[in-house]
Design a protein around this nucleic acid. Structure first.
Length: 106
DNA sequence: AGCCTGACTCGGA
DNA sequence: CTCCGAGCCAGGC
């Protein structure tokens, strides 16, 4: 198993997130086969920087955008999600109970 | 080789 | 509900 393989897993999971839905780093990590390595998920996405992967649909457990550090990106992400139909509150948080993506919705 | 930082999460206060 | 501390792995210097 190559270390790069883990990254490909993360990208694959993110790509599986349907339009208008968001997921958390922990959830993606778990589905990608990296339980507890949520941090690495964010790290992988940061290194990603590709438009082919909807990294914008990935937020933290609070449903808030953690990009803060990357100037401009956090605002951009919010607008992109809003364009997909995702609602944000005054604090810039998403209602995971509603837009939170479930791997297998019952 | 080691040390520090980081797109995070969880449990407790 | 929010805030704080500890744990986790990988990359950069």
């Amino acid at each position: 198993m190559k270390p790069e393989g883990s990254y490909a897993r993360i990208y694959a999971v993110v790509c599986r997130i349907p339009c208008g839905r968001v997921s958390t780093y922990g959830a993606v990590a778990r589905v990608a086969g990296l339980p507890g390595r949520a941090r690495q998920v964010g790290y992988a996405l940061h290194a990603l920087s590709e438009e082919e992967v909807p990294w914008q649909r990935v937020v933290n457990a609070r449903g808030q955008i953690s990009l803060g550090a990357e100037a401009g990106m956090n605002s951009l992400q919010r607008q992109m999600l809003e364009a997909e139909g995702v609602s944000f509150d005054d604090r810039g948080r998403v209602n995971l109970d509603e837009f939170g993506w479930r791997v297998n919705p019952s």
